[in-house]
Amino acid sequence: MPEGRIVKALSGFYYVQTTDDLFQCKGRGVFRKKNITPLVGDFVSFDIREEKEGYITEIKPRTNELIRPPIANITQAIIVSSAIMPEFSTTLLDRFLVLIEAKGITPIIFISKTDLLTKEQLDTLKNYQADYVSIGYHVELFSAKVPQDMDRIKGYLKDQVTVIAGQSGVGKSSFINTISPDALIKTADISKSLGRGKHTTRHVELIEVNDGLVADTPGFSALDFSEIEAEELMNCFPEIRELKEHCKFRGCLHAKEPKCAVKEAEENDIIPKYRYKHYISFLEEIQTRKPRY
């Protein structure tokens, strides 16, 4: 039985890419009965019924999945932040990082528009970069106007399945367009031929960019922590995750508990104070949300 990866979902059809061809498939009724929806990124088995058409018979186990956008088996999430216009925000960056860490996806931080900064602003940004690198994150500062920067950025996409997230005003589409102009032109042509207009269904698609696949849709359209419990939040901060074993009390939330290794590390400037402040802020947000029924 042939196998492949769903690279596009549109109007009840799933487009499955095999090693050498693309098949338009429908999902079996059994998926609806089990309340399972095939997702873009899924590895599947399918029956071929007619030339380049078939039915999906099996969805392979997923390594991860997102609800918004609905996509599975992502290997990395690139967070595109702006150095200026809009102003760089560690709070917003940390919200994205928590959401990505909670899904077990590798985050990479790209900070754009560095060519617009003064020397003092750039030095401040490099201090933030050093903080995040010390925590274990990859952080790239770049300008879309510098070809060498863009070549370096492209290298991160090779052999990966990437979803791109970022604050509004960064321009996710223009970012992809700068990396690979052919990708968006191709997507626009497909959309046109499918008659995708204002009132047709928005679809998720994986497009080929630099020998990798990139989700052609903004990642993480909701930035709330509705899927994260208070006890799980600490695991979304790598520097807190490392220290939690050294707290006196099991189940320490690193907020008001005595003899907390995380609080001690923050007081002694071992971990960035603003990261700890964001952790406490996010923890309070989770603890005060309305219960779900």
Score class of each variant (00 low, 15 high):
123 D>S: 15
123 D>G: 09
123 D>Y: 05
124 T>W: 10
124 T>A: 15
125 L>F: 03
125 L>K: 01
125 L>G: 02
126 K>L: 12
126 K>D: 12
127 N>S: 11
128 Y>L: 10
128 Y>M: 14
128 Y>S: 10
129 Q>F: 07
129 Q>V: 05
129 Q>H: 03
129 Q>Y: 00
131 D>C: 00
131 D>A: 01
131 D>S: 04
132 Y>T: 05
132 Y>R: 00
133 V>N: 03
134 S>I: 04
135 I>G: 02
135 I>M: 01
135 I>N: 03
137 Y>D: 15
137 Y>K: 07
138 H>L: 15
138 H>D: 15
138 H>Y: 15
139 V>C: 05
139 V>A: 06
139 V>L: 03
140 E>I: 14
140 E>W: 07
140 E>Y: 12
141 L>I: 04
142 F>E: 11
142 F>N: 02
143 S>F: 05
144 A>C: 15
144 A>V: 14
144 A>L: 15
145 K>A: 08
145 K>F: 14
147 P>A: 07
147 P>W: 04
147 P>N: 02
149 D>A: 02
149 D>Y: 09
149 D>V: 13
149 D>I: 09
152 R>H: 12
152 R>K: 10
153 I>D: 02
155 G>C: 08
156 Y>L: 11
156 Y>Q: 10
156 Y>V: 05
156 Y>C: 05
157 L>W: 00
158 K>F: 14
158 K>T: 08
159 D>W: 08
159 D>P: 04
160 Q>R: 11
161 V>C: 08
162 T>E: 02
162 T>F: 05
162 T>Y: 10
162 T>S: 08
163 V>P: 00
163 V>L: 13
163 V>E: 09
164 I>H: 02
164 I>K: 00
165 A>K: 01
165 A>D: 02
165 A>L: 04
165 A>Y: 06
165 A>Q: 00
165 A>M: 10
167 Q>K: 10
168 S>V: 14
169 G>Q: 04
171 G>D: 13
172 K>A: 11
172 K>P: 01
172 K>Y: 13
175 F>L: 13
175 F>C: 07
176 I>W: 11
176 I>R: 08
